[in-house]
Each structure stands twice: as structure tokens, then as C-alpha cells.
Nucleic acid binder design. Structure first.
Lengths: 353, 353
DNA sequence: GTTAGCACTCCTCCCTAACGAGTGCTAACC
DNA sequence: GGTTAGCACTCGTTAGGGAGGAGTGCTAAC
């Protein structure tokens, strides 16, 4: 209020430079930064007193704060927000790092289940905070084929392959023994009716089958199971989250007493929270940063999320990103997430080409 | 040394009762326990002075210690060990809890990949420490069948189903487009050669195929990939570990400053450590407890592991268990792990019946 | 508008003393 | 001889009180 002349809008270049310096120093040291340290370490071309004046303005505008009177300044969430917005569009990952990450992705064979894990691990390794990734599951899965393979005398494996790639296997118990041939015949009969169908369509087929006479009870049970598995697939898609390198975040001094972090970890295991995240990213097309209190969930008020969608909108999308303390190296993290999401896009394109 | 008359051997009943009381009190309160609290809360039938004398003996024998002169007693790892050995054979899980756990297992359909997750989650929920589980992978996997399914124009899914149940899918890129029928024909040709084969046998087939003429390069590449996947399966089996409820352990006061715990989590992510664990349990048939410094790895010196093997020796085995602070409710944890391992045995038997 | 000077604030660190929990010893008791 | 009451002693914990210092905000000079 005091010395501010106009509304929060754009800051004078010098004020912005000082805010930037404060943030960079604080990110590096985790300690409140004073006017003296600032002028001695950053070529600001002004005296500590001037810096103090600017600091007072920045504080009045809500971009920085003091823990107490005789302490240095600490960026607020709003300060980080401004900082991120000024740098977000320009940061690009250094070519060396691009190369290293691309190299890591080159290692993986096209085993599709491993992509997100790899993405999460790569992000964690590159940014030294935690990497996150959800699988890119299709909006609505479709059946490719169903196999019935004999196991023991009265058990069989039901293998469901989706058009989009994923495979799932469940165990089936049968009232009476069946031959391999009998099972194969049944599988191809089922495939004829289900192949290419979505979860809803399988459901329809199931209800119509219930009216038909002459169908083996086992056949109906198999279709029931397939319908259930398809439901699961559709539901899972938004609820699975891989995280890697949470230990990196544990190492941050702000989380040395594990209390706050425990709540963060708890939220990360909450499927509803994860579902919310993916839904939040649905409309977006580029990296988005959620800083501290900008996160909807109170548990996340001490951390920042940098997320990016990937995949093909309307077909199969997922989310990758990083999670770290609000005191985080945003430029590097943002550019890394952006780069990895680009790589993930390439991979998905390759899969659907 | 001082007052001990004979070697560590069996303790007098009264001493044992007092050790037991110390441990139970310490497990409950996490604070060193004094002679007064002990007589007031446990019906020991003796005065604090007598308890102090016994405590001195127990300390000389190495079963308990003091943090400092004027503090109460704390059990040592050796004390826990003695305690665990006196109770291990007799503890049985309360019927109510048995029912609850069995009920949880009833929920899961026979989707075999989910068993260990469920076991880990159940253990975590029942014991309030962390639950661990490795999948029960067969000693040596065998191929059941291979499918080649067209994806895009130049990509196909290679689906590998193992005789033991697990399924894996990878993406294959092809130099030239192939029809669905062509792929199916190739798949059945490959199946004829690989079905029922172990990783080593697939490897042999591959080398013999390299000498044959007239084989499509793609066919050889597929067999190569299958060989690689089989190797992976065999290797993965001992290296995968699901954990659930690590947050429970974070909540323990001994880990309030997250330093020690971070090292524990680090070790849990180390595949070599996990491999060591499973190998450690290979010869055993019942629950085994590793208390603090009994663990080979220094990172684990502040936690205890209660592990049990499950599965069919020689066919498919895995390990389940819990991880908690050395100050843990051993009787309950041991009986829970034992009970869940029994359930897992039932499940595996059912699968292989 | 910028800067030097300076009083002021308030956190941090360190020292000390009072407190108290719990022990270990000794001597009496059963 | 084992058990117990009594008591001196140890030592960590806590609270209080400067001394020190980092950093600010204000004022006045540049």
C-alpha cells in the first residue's frame, strides 16, 4: 500500500531484477536474504539502501515478506508467481541436458507400460525434485482381442488385449474342466462379438447376451469379466500416478521435520486427488505451474507442482511433471518438464501413427 | 557382568516378565521406562527397588540400556530378540482380525498382478506400519504363447503370455507394412517353436534360427525380443517390491527428523537390496524377524523387518512382510504376517492346482 | 532519486540455575 | 537371602537473562 503508486500490474525493471535476485538467492540458500548479500552477490549497480527501498515496495505489493523484523526477505507465493510468469516463456533447456534426457529415452524399448515410469525417473534425476507421471490411457478403451488359456484343470487365464496396447490377465475358475480347443472356440466366438468394442458397447453386448438362449454360462461369465475389466481400465486411466525421487524432496531443509511432507505424500496416494490433477490439466496445452497456496488441496500448500499434459487430445492423454518445495529452481524445472512432455508426445505419436 | 550368575541362557521367569513389561511399555509410549511406572502399571507384585535390581541384571546381560544415568530403560536389539523368541511361537491373530483380513482378500478377483499389492496394503492397514510384498514369480518362466497384433501401418504389438500367468506387451516397429493375416501366420510359426520353452531354451532356439536360411528378418527380431523379455521376467522376479503405508512409519516419533528414514527409503528402492532380501528368505519356511542391527544393511539398523515367504518352493515363491521401527508391536505384527502368508499360500495353491 | 549513517528490533546463541525423574547404594526388614 | 524403604547423587531438561549480530527503516545529506 504505502509506496505503491499504481495497481500491481507490471513492475519497474529494476524492481523486477531485485525480486528475481531475491528469489534466486533464496532458492540457492534457503535462508532469508538481506539487502547487503544481494548487492554483494548480484551486480545490481545500486546501494543496499536503495535495495531496501525497493524491497519495501515489493513487500507492500505482496511479492516478498519477512519472517520477523530483523530478518531478510523471503519470496511469497505471489512473488514466485510473478517470477515464473516473467521467465516461463523464454526458458529453454540447455542442449547438453536435452541430449542427456533424449539419451535416457533412447534406452527404453517400446514397452509402453514403462514410459511414464521412465518419464518420472528422468524428471526426478534432471531436476533433483520428485518426478510425477500418469499413464496416457485412451479416453475410452477398446477391446482388441480376448484369449482363454487353460491353466490347471478347472482354472483358465483370461487375457484381454486392448486396441491401445495395454494387456491384462485374470484367473478364471470353471465349474467343469474344459479342453484347450473348447476354450479357443469360445474365445473366438467372444472375439467375434467384442472385438473393437468400447466398455459401454461390451456392456450392451452383455445385456443382449443375457436374453439369448443356448449360450454357455461360462461364456457369459467371461463377457461379464471383460466388461468389468474394461470398466477398470477406463477408471484406472485417470487414477494412476507414478512418482519417483520423492526422497529428493525429503532432503529439502523445509521438510526436515517430516510432518508437512507426510501430508503431501498422503495426498499423492489419494486417487481422488490424482484424478483431480489430470482433470485440471485436461484443457491445457502447455506447462502449468501451481505454486504453494495456488494448489486446491491444503496439503499441497507448501509445495509447487509443475505439470504438463502429453499425448493426443481426444485420443489418449496423460500428465507428467515435478513436485518440489515452493522454493524450487523454477526455470530449470519448467524447461525440463516442457522438454520431457515434448518427448512423450513424440512417443505417443509414434505409437498411434 | 556384575550380578549375572550364569551365561545369557534362559532368564528367570520374573526377569523375563519385567523385560516383557519394559518392552510393552516402551512400545506403547516411546519413552524410556522407569521402575516406578512399571510397578504402577503392570501387576508385578514387587517393589520398585526390586525392579531396579532386576533391571540392573538385564542391563548387564545386554537386554536393556539407558540413554543416560537418570533416565529409564530402553530395550536393546538383543532385548527385542529375546522377547520375540519367547512370544513368536505362541502368538495367533485374533479371530476378528483374521476375519477382517480374509474379507479383504475375498474382495479381489483373481487378477494375479494385484495380489502382492493387496497383501502389502492389508499388512499396512492391519499393523499400522509399512507392508511389503514381492510378486511370486516362478523360478524359471515358460512361454505360453506369443501374439502379433497390427497397430499402425508399420507398428505391431508383441504380446507375450507366460505359462505362469503374467502377460507383457511391447511395441514393435516394422520396416514394411504387414497384414493382420501375415502377422498371425508368423505368430503361429513362432508359437510352434517357443511354446512351453524357458528363457534359456528360447535363447537356444534363437541361435539355431540364426543359422537357418529363408527366415524373415522380422521373425528373428521377434524371437530376439521374446528372449529379451524372458530374461527380464526372470530377473524382475527377485527385484520387484511393493510397499504400502510407508507413511505409517514416517509418523513414528523416532523418525520425526526425516534423516534416518530417508536412508531406509533409499535402501528400499535399491534393487540389489530387494534381491538380497528374497534370497535371504529362500531357505526359510516360517516368519522371520530381523531386528535393527540384525539387518545386514546399515541403513536398516533403526528398523525391524518381519518377513515370511509364500508360494510353492521350487515353483514360485515370493516374500511378504512388514517394516517398522525397532520399537514395534511384534506379537501382533508377527501373527498378522504369518496369517497373511498363509492366505497367500492358499491363493498360489489355487492358481497352480 | 540515491546513498550514508544510525538507532532500533528481534532472533539466536550461550550461560546459569532450578527442577525433577530415575538410578544405585546401603541398611533394615521378613 | 531375597526384598524393601530411604536417600544421596547424577544428569538431562527447562526457563530466564544477557551479549551479539543481522537486518531493517528512518532521516538527512548528496
Amino acid at each position: 500500500m504505502a509506496r505503491r503508486k499504481d495497481r500491481p500490474g507490471p513492475l519497474e525493471p529494476r524492481s523486477e531484477a531485485i525480486l528475481q535476485a531475491i528469489i534466486e538467492e533464496y532458492v540457492a540458500t534457503a535462508a532469508p536474504v538481506g539487502s547487503m548479500t544481494l548487492v554483494s552477490r548480484y551486480r545490481l549497480g545500486v546501494s543496499p539502501a536503495t535495495v531496501r527501498n525497493v524491497m519495501a515496495e515489493l513487500e507492500a505489493a505482496g511479492y516478498i515478506g519477512h519472517p520477523h523484523t530483523s530478518a531478510g526477505r523471503v519470496p511469497t507465493d505471489a512473488g514466485y508467481r510473478l517470477y515464473v510468469e516473467t521467465i516461463a516463456d523464454v526458458v529453454v533447456l540447455a542442449p547438453v541436458e536435452q541430449l542427456m534426457i533424449r539419451h535416457q529415452f533412447g534406452q527404453v524399448e517400446f514397452a509402453s507400460e514403462q514410459w511414464f515410469r521412465l518419464a518420472a525417473a528422468t524428471l526426478a534425476g534432471a531436476t533433483h525434485v520428485a518426478g510425477l507421471a500418469t499413464p496416457a490411457k485412451p479416453i475410452a478403451c477398446r477391446v482388441r482381442r480376448v484369449d482363454l488359456l487353460p491353466n490347471g484343470s478347472r482354472t483358465a487365464s483370461l487375457v484381454l488385449v486392448l486396441a491401445e496396447g495395454p494387456v491384462k490377465q485374470v484367473l478364471l475358475t470353471m465349474d467343469e474342466p474344459r479342453t484347450r480347443e473348447g476354450l479357443e472356440a469360445m474365445a473366438s466366438a467372444i472375439n467375434a462379438r467384442l472385438s473393437g468394442h468400447s466398455a459401454a458397447e461390451v456392456e450392451q453386448t452383455l445385456t443382449s447376451m443375457l436374453d439369448e438362449s443356448g449360450l454357455a454360462p461360462l461364456q457369459i461369465r467371461v463377457v461379464e469379466r471383460v466388461a468389468a475389466m474394461m470398466r477398470d481400465f477406463d477408471a484406472e486411466s485417470v487414477e494412476d500416478l507414478f512418482s519417483e525421487g520423492l526422497l529428493n524432496v525429503m532432503a529439502a531443509p523445509e521438510f526436515s521435520q517430516s510432518d508437512k511432507l507426510r501430508r503431501v505424500f498422503g495426498a499423492l496416494q489419494d486417487r481422488r486427488y490424482i484424478g483431480g490433477l489430470t482433470r485440471l490439466m485436461e484443457g491445457r496445452s502447455d506447462v502449468h505451474v501451481f505454486i504453494g497456496s495456488e494448489n486446491d488441496h491444503e496439503e499441497m500448500h507448501d509445495v509447487s507442482l509443475i505439470l504438463a499434459p502429453y499425448g493426443r487430445p481426444g485420443q489418449a492423454t496423460g500428465v507428467i511433471g515435478v513436485l518440489g518445495p515452493t522454493r524450487m529452481a523454477y526455470p530449470h524445472a519448467i524447461s525440463t518438464v516442457r522438454y520431457v512432455s515434448g518427448l512423450m508426445n513424440e512417443l505417443v505419436d509414434h505409437l498411434y501413427a
